[in-house]
C-alpha cells in the first residue's frame, strides 16, 4: 500500500520534472530544424527559477479567482497524472478515482479557471484568448466523447488502466480503427495544448494568440505556475496518447525500483519520439486561421467516428 503510494508519487514527480524538459527539447529541436542554434533543452528550468524569484503583481480590479487560477491550473495536470498509466501498467492507489470522462473533467477544470482568470484581469487580450480557447475546446469535445466511446468499444472499459491492459494484449496491435483513433487523439492533443496548427506557442503577435494572450496579466510565481501547468498538460496528454493508445510496451508491470527505472527510461525515449514528431508537424504546417479551427476539429471528429463505425460494425 505504502509502496503503491510511493510509486504514485514517483509518477507525479516524473510528470513535474520531465515536462519542462519536453518543452525545452521541442524548442531546441525546432531551432535546429530552422538552422538556428536555439536555447538549451534545460532553458525552461532556468525560466521557472527566474520567475519564482520575481515579484507577483495583479490587475487592481482582479478578484480571488485571479489568485486561485494558477494553483488550479498547476494542480489539474498533476491530478490527471494520478489517473493515467504514466509509469506502471497496473493501477496504483488512486487510479480508480475517475475514468476517462472523469479525467477529462479534471484536466478541463484547469482550463476553466485559466479562462475565468484571463477575463477577471479585464484585459481585452485575456477575454479574446479565453473565448478562442473555449471555441477550440468546445469543438474538440464531440471528438473526445467519440474517442472515449471508441476506446470503450475496443477495450470494454473507460478507466485508462483497463484500456491500457486490453490494448497491451490485443492482436493485431494496429488495426485501421485503432490507427484512426490514435490520429484523431493526437490532433485533439495538439489543439488542446495550443500547438501548431491551431495556435503558435512561439508567436509574439497578440492578435493571433490563443494560449499566450490568456497569460498576459500573470507575472512572477503565478506565471511560472501557469506555464508549468501548460507544459504538464501537453506532457500528460502525450502520455495518454503514447501509453494508452499507441504503444503500452515498456511500462512497469510490478512494483519494483528496477521496473520503474526502466519505465522512466522508456517514457523518456517515447517522449523524445513524440517531440521529434511534433517538431516535424510544426515545421511542415503553418498555423491555420481561427475560422478554420472548426474544420480541423471536424476532421478529427470524422476520424474518430470512422473508427467507431469500423470497430462496431466492421466485424
Amino acid at each position: 500500500m505504502l509502496a503503491a503510494a510511493l510509486g504514485q508519487c514517483v509518477a507525479v514527480a516524473v510528470v513535474l520534472l520531465m515536462s519542462p524538459l519536453l518543452k525545452g527539447t521541442i524548442d531546441t529541436l525546432k531551432a535546429r530544424v530552422q538552422s538556428r542554434r536555439g536555447p538549451s533543452p534545460l532553458q525552461p528550468y532556468f525560466d521557472l527559477a527566474k520567475l519564482f524569484r520575481k515579484q507577483r503583481s495583479a490587475p487592481p480590479d482582479a478578484s480571488w479567482v485571479f489568485r486561485l487560477a494558477p494553483h488550479v491550473a498547476f494542480a489539474a495536470p498533476i491530478a490527471f497524472a494520478i489517473l493515467i498509466p504514466v509509469l506502471s501498467a497496473f493501477p496504483l492507489s488512486w487510479a480508480f478515482m475517475a475514468d476517462m470522462v472523469g479525467s477529462g473533467f479534471v484536466i478541463g477544470i484547469g482550463g476553466f479557471f485559466t479562462n475565468l482568470a484571463a477575463m477577471d484581469g479585464a484585459s481585452p487580450y485575456g477575454g479574446l484568448g479565453a473565448s478562442r480557447s473555449r471555441l477550440v475546446s468546445s469543438l474538440a469535445e464531440p471528438t473526445l466523447i467519440l474517442i472515449f466511446f471508441a476506446v470503450g468499444f475496443i477495450s470494454g472499459g473507460t478507466v485508462p488502466f483497463v484500456v491500457d491492459n486490453v490494448l497491451h494484449t490485443a492482436s493485431p496491435l494496429i488495426t485501421p480503427s485503432h490507427a484512426l483513433i490514435a490520429a484523431a487523439f493526437l490532433m485533439v492533443v495538439l489543439a488542446e495544448a495550443g500547438r501548431i496548427p491551431i495556435d503558435n506557442p512561439a508567436t509574439t503577435q497578440e492578435l493571433s494568440m490563443i494560449e499566450g494572450s490568456r497569460l498576459f496579466e500573470f507575472s512572477g510565481p503565478d506565471q511560472a505556475l501557469m506555464e508549468w501547468g501548460g507544459w504538464m498538460k501537453l506532457f500528460v496528454l502525450l502520455v495518454v496518447w503514447l501509453n494508452v493508445l499507441i504503444w503500452p510496451q515498456g511500462l512497469a508491470t510490478q512494483l519494483t525500483v528496477g521496473a520503474f527505472a526502466i519505465a522512466i527510461g522508456t517514457l523518456a525515449a517515447k517522449m523524445l519520439g513524440a517531440a521529434v514528431l511534433i517538431v516535424g508537424i510544426e515545421s511542415a504546417l503553418a498555423k491555420i486561421r481561427i475560422l478554420r479551427v472548426p474544420e480541423y476539429l471536424g476532421g478529427t471528429f470524422v476520424l474518430s467516428f470512422l473508427s467507431v463505425v469500423l470497430f462496431s460494425l466492421g466485424r
Partner: peptide, 20 residues
C-alpha cells in the same frame, strides 16, 4: 462544412449497416 461532415458520417454509417 459541419453539415457536410455530419451527412458524410451518416452515409458511412448507412453503408456499413447495408453491408452488414
Amino acid at each position: 462544412f459541419p453539415t457536410a461532415l455530419l451527412l458524410g458520417a451518416g452515409l458511412t454509417l448507412i453503408a456499413f449497416v447495408a453491408a452488414g
